[in-house]
Design a protein around this nucleic acid. Structure first.
Lengths: 341, 341
DNA sequence: CTGTTAGCGCTTTCAC
DNA sequence: GTGAAAGCGCTAACAG
């Protein structure tokens, strides 16, 4: 049988209450007593039973998920995953609420964050829009004792506790190598479609992509980025336009969302020429396009994993527990036609 | 506040003990009473607090992990992950023991399985060697009430409860497409290195690989498979031999373990010719080879994920709980130089 | 500062 | 068949 608080109490010659105070670093214990108890804990090899502790506390953790109100499949998927987590929350002693904010709008995000500072939930997860104001708002929250984790897009330089998302520079580089190798030494232009350079994930993907192309595929030219604001219609228009104007385009890298529009534009052109295409985010649309050959490879981040990970990390933090690092690493999935889930 | 057993008892006008009997489908309750309680449970929307239940039961789950005693990095890694799980087990109310069996030896595996039938652990995870005897031994266990899950290599047609591993046919097809596209339409032979055709995972990878090459890359010829028994030295010898004999080899697919030997053979030949290589399993050796350009892509299964998943599934089964399917899907990781963890 | 006591939600004797 | 009561390991009032 594992040692319990009773064993510690007996070994240290104190009461349960005192053991509990030491265990939870609560005040009201003399230094000597504390030392005695701590020694007993160590000698006896005690490990706290978190389940029992949580049962006794009867506490549930109010968590808040802030997600952008973007009308694209990726964000819909992310929302669905958060809802699934909400459905599971009674079992997990969490009480999750979601808040929608306009996409790419730092001011709106700051307003929500500041308001949450009043509410004081046990933790906050957000898809960060990268701006100094947001960074400051997050830092205020953290300093007031509310742990914050970023999901999908990070906020480096801030005090956020954790980032549940992929390494976007690596993602860009991976896309570049895939595109370069699939093109097999051909010479030509590459069109890049992004959502907005305001979010860090998109900026980083572009950066990684451009640098690897420059380093290893000098015959390829990366054209100026097209910003489609993750909006299908806008993406369609801009890509169609680019393809019409530029005959030298032999490949496309779509690093944001709104791929529905991209795919439409590619199909319009299908008769004219065969492009090699790498896109981000597996959705119903990109999946179909991968299967029918319009897209050659899809890079993906598992939104479900990101949401579950963010929650696990926030909960562990609240419980003062550690997590399994490997389990919280969000990997970059590469999907070809053959390994779709 | 969530409804508890007390609420059910009150609503149904019975005692806690009776509610508990109904909840755990134990005998000793009249049909009428049972119905009354079940109605109350339904109306009140009760969900059992598993943590509390487990606390009261004080039960821990004895689980057994059977792993092959293969001397290659992948199996070492798998072993390490099992040990890590063992280290975590006090916290998770599991009591995990590992048993080593000789690799590719159905008889030895059967002996161990039969012996475990006596011991009656709460669940068994094994890396299956595919043979009718093993299948029967597993079926005997399952029929005697011990849930069994397969890890890494499956045992289809058996009564195993779950498989924690990748889809190996898809893995083979993915390797084929990657190799085919990287080779960019070249004509030549492809050497295939496997461990043994006795394990299902290797057979399936080969099958997927050969079929996709045949379908989509008719200019490539898949040579008869080389069986290196996942042994570095044996692999080295056989591959070196094949490369020396066959000048038309332009690509290599290594679908098993023992890549240390393969890499050595490839490096010996490095001066002569540039091969395109896809290998399975990310280890210190394959990682280095990917970075230095000896290997072009690595397909991987996350052993840590497999082990954790097997345990979660077994535990959930023992607790009568359900799992999050997406979380238990073991994906095929594709690593290029740029997205290594 | 320290100890006593009564639970958290569930299971499990042991009576009736 | 059914119920009362004790207890799993921990926390939280409330006394002293």
């Amino acid at each position: 049988m594992r040692p319990t608080v009773h064993d510690i109490a007996a070994a240290a010659g104190v009461s349960l209450a005192t053991v509990d105070r030491v265990l939870n670093q609560r005040p009201g214990v003399r230094g000597v007593t504390r030392d005695k108890v701590e020694a007993a804990i160590r000698e006896i090899g005690y490990v706290r039973d978190v389940a029992a502790a949580n049962l006794a506390k009867g506490r549930t953790y109010p968590l808040v998920f802030i997600v952008p109100a973007s009308d694209n499949s990726f964000m819909h998927g992310l929302n669905a995953e958060v809802r699934a987590a909400v459905a599971r929350s009674p079992v997990e002693r969490t009480d999750i609420r979601t808040v929608e904010v306009p996409a790419f709008d730092p001011a709106a995000l700051v307003a929500v964050l500041d308001q949450l500072g009043e509410e004081r939930p046990a933790g906050i997860a957000l898809v960060a829009t990268d701006s100094p104001d947001v960074r400051e708002a997050v830092d205020r929250l953290v300093q007031s004792g509310i742990p914050v984790v970023t999901v999908v897009s990070d906020l480096t330089g801030s005090l956020r506790y954790h980032y549940a998302g992929v390494d976007n520079i690596a993602a860009g580089r991976t896309a570049a190598r895939l595109l370069g190798r699939f093109l097999g030494g051909a010479k030509g232009d590459i069109a890049v479609l992004a959502g907005s350079m305001l979010v860090r994930d998109h900026r980083e993907r572009l950066e990684g992509f451009a640098s690897l192309i420059a380093e290893e595929f000098p015959d390829l030219t990366v054209l100026p980025v097209i910003e489609g604001r993750d909006d299908p219609d806008m993406a369609h228009m801009l890509v169609a336009d680019a393809l019409a104007k530029r005959d030298a385009i032999i490949g496309v890298y779509s690093l944001g969302a709104g791929n529905r529009g991209l795919i439409r534009a590619l199909k319009d052109k299908a008769a004219d020429r065969r492009l090699t295409v790498v896109a981000h985010e597996l959705t119903a649309h990109t999946r179909a396009a991968l299967l029918d050959g319009t897209i050659d490879a899809i890079l993906n981040q598992d939104a479900g994993h990101e949401v579950r990970s963010a929650i696990r990390v926030l909960k562990a933090k609240a419980d003062g527990l550690s997590v399994i690092d490997a389990q919280e690493r969000i990997r970059l999935d590469i999907f070809l036609k053959d390994n779709l889930p």
